[in-house]
Nucleic acid binder design. Sequence first.
DNA 1: TGCAAGATGGGCCGTGCGGCCCATAGGCGC
DNA 2: GCGCCTATGGGCCGCACGGCCCATCTTGCA
Lengths: 220, 220
Amino acid sequence: MSPKVDSDTLRVLLVDDHDLFRTGLRNLLEEQGVQVVGEAASGFDAIRIVREIAPDVVVMDLNMPGMTGVEATREISSIAPLTRVVVLTISDQDEDVMDAIVAGACGYLVKDSSIEELMRGIKAAAIGESLISPPIASKVLQRMRAVTLDQGAETIRSELSERELDVLRLIANGKDNAEIAEALHISPKTVKNHISNILMKLQIENRIQAAVYAVRSGIV
Amino acid sequence: MSPKVDSDTLRVLLVDDHDLFRTGLRNLLEEQGVQVVGEAASGFDAIRIVREIAPDVVVMDLNMPGMTGVEATREISSIAPLTRVVVLTISDQDEDVMDAIVAGACGYLVKDSSIEELMRGIKAAAIGESLISPPIASKVLQRMRAVTLDQGAETIRSELSERELDVLRLIANGKDNAEIAEALHISPKTVKNHISNILMKLQIENRIQAAVYAVRSGIV
DNA sequence: TGCAAGATGGGCCGTGCGGCCCATAGGCGC
DNA sequence: GCGCCTATGGGCCGCACGGCCCATCTTGCA
């Protein structure tokens, strides 16, 4: 069985300003066994729902009135780093492609993709991988060489204080609270306080997820 | 056992592209009773002379125009396995350290070593032992540890059963034992047993380190 | 001057975790 | 058939963990 990704357990939020598209997509995904835990018609709603229910994957349309999908993606990546955003938009000509990627999108699919392709994109995102429609993949790679280096790490780390990063690094090394306290010359209780703040800021549940986050973010 | 090494009978070849250095070194060695049976200013000459006179020990500089000392060492080790090569090079910063070791160098000394140290290195090489300058030695050990760990990790990973890999993947997703049990349709107690086995096999302490290992190994 | 935020701590408490013992069932090789 | 390994499960236990209160002190900003 080897549950690389068990689609049954995947909690997905749909964000699109067209009710009809959302409804149709919901049905398709649910037929595939995906648990659609919410729908949003705007970026604002999307952010609010992400705060509330912290879905595994957000399927995000870019073209929406009010807050754009790019802005919503950026905000979601900031407040819930473990929630992966898959952009699903009209055309590969969309000029926001790069912005969406930089904003933290974990996948980029065009709307005429098949349901199978969307499923693969969602599953890939859920495990931290990315599925990008071939037409735009090369553009992305080219652009990425120019930008990323400081930006990606910068925004994420600004959420955590220096001291919290110290603690996070030690967490990722498998240290327990007593060892962290000794290494930083502080009380174990202070370590626990820092960890509580880290978990709250990253919207995660436990130190294991924190360690994984640290490794994936290149903090350690 | 331990063939007696009489420095009077030691036949040494000096390889260095600097005439002055070779000459000075020859005098020093001959004062110590070493029989310098040849000098070479290049790797090609060194190989030729080794073929002709089969010295006991070759004292080899690494930085030479044309064929490098590493290449010459590799060739000599191949054509005259009984001839020991002692690398004598400028700095412990030399990047070729490991290459030289792999190429078959039987000792590794920096050029600011004392004549006594060089003598000990040559005698050691002559009886199949190795003298390595401390700054170099630490690097070698470090590399060995890394290699050993890598190989160990590879070996060990293959020792993880499929079921244990299932569990490990879920650990890395931050799931607790109850969630893992539910996902795999087994008892939480069985999950704990699997985890205990994983920790033992990977020689780690807790599930955090297991999660980090999984991420770094690309298992998730 | 006051106030917000961060770093430093303490106490209490429920629960998750991992180690220790143990058993049973099934497959695989000798 | 016998031994070995794996997967499955149980009971017990001590400790680590994370949430919930709370406090103090410093720093910086308005």
